[in-house]
């Protein structure tokens, strides 16, 4: 009987052990290793030549303009991508959710989701062609309607905007689909009651729709913020962080120093991790009260 009791207590731990081991091996261990590396002037080729330098890498990091540029770029990228993607995704979802024109809506739904299933690498390459200042279609169209052409990715004043544009185009369909699913799960009876009370459309949306889909919106907000903070692929392919660091983001900054200065890159990695942890914590604290879980 006693043995049975021990098993009862142990069982949940045994059950989660496999998952925990995997996390330990592939998440916790690398994180601590990263922390260790960040205190070293690490020589990749000859370990014996690595030096413990204490917080030198962090001092170097916080004294570097380039780091602040990368940080500011990342913050702007995140704010723009997250807010615009959410707004456009919400509008698209509301549009598709209409009762009228079902066939066109189905087509639209498939259309906006397609970018999500294409590799971001291909998307970035195609957009690079579209944005070419001399031969690109976008400038051709701009000139056609009498607008001045843009340098797109090749000028530091427009490069970030161009990268953001591509990211939004890529992500919006996927998030619209999540919001659409949320909209469809709102019980119609609530809307019927609101209609009986003569509530205006705006009020219905603001007082009923929005709170009812808030868990999904919150989920998208968290996922997208973290994802945007880690943006890399579009930057790597389309701009290489340039021109003149105008699109250099934190992860790209880490990538740039991966082989020349591993310790410094690790220190940047730790800082990025801390920022994302703080952001996530703040989100949960601030928004948890405003979210309506059914």
């Amino acid at each position: 009987m006693n043995r049975r009791k021990i098993w009862e207590t142990l069982r949940p731990y045994v059950m989660i052990l496999p998952a925990m081991l995997a996390i330990l091996c592939f998440v916790i261990y690398p994180v601590f290793y990263l922390l260790k590396l960040s205190f070293y002037k690490y020589n990749l080729l000859n370990k014996a030549k690595s030096k413990f330098v204490g917080v030198d890498n962090y001092e170097q990091l916080f004294a570097k303009d380039e780091f602040y540029t990368a940080l500011t770029n990342t913050v702007w990228y995140t704010i723009a991508t997250v807010s615009l993607t959410m707004l456009i995704a919400l509008l698209l979802a509301l549009w598709i959710n209409q009762k009228k024109g079902k066939k066109i809506n189905a087509l639209l739904q498939a259309g906006i989701f397609t970018p999500h299933i294409i590799s971001i690498v291909s998307i970035a390459l195609v957009w690079m062609l579209l944005m070419d200042p001399n031969h690109g279609i976008l400038n051709f169209l701009l000139k056609l309607v009498g607008l001045p052409p843009s340098k797109w990715l090749q000028s530091s004043s427009t490069s970030m905007m161009s990268v953001i544009l591509v990211s939004i185009w890529h992500g919006v369909g996927y998030y619209a689909l999540i919001i659409l699913a949320a909209l469809k799960s709102v019980p119609p009876t609530i809307y019927e009651a609101a209609a009986l009370d003569n509530a205006s459309r705006f009020k219905t949306f603001y007082k009923i729709t929005l709170p009812m889909i808030s868990p999904q919106l919150f989920f998208i907000l968290i996922i997208m913020t973290i994802g945007s903070f880690k943006v890399f692929d579009t930057v790597r392919i389309m701009t290489g962080g340039g021109p003149n660091n105008s699109t250099s983001t934190l992860v790209y900054h880490i990538y740039e120093y991966r082989s020349n200065n591993l310790g410094y890159a690790s220190a940047t990695g730790i800082v990025l991790m801390v920022i994302i942890a703080i952001l996530t914590f703040v989100y949960f604290r601030m928004l948890s009260k405003k979210i309506h879980y059914q």
Partner: peptide
């Protein structure tokens, strides 16, 4: 299922050992 999860555990343990293998060998 207990036997199964034990097996998985053993396999994962091997994995952990594998990934902590030192480069100095």
């Amino acid at each position: 299922s207990v036997v199964g999860s034990m097996l998985v555990m053993v396999m994962l343990l091997g994995l952990v050992m594998g990934c902590s293998t030192n480069n100095n060998q």
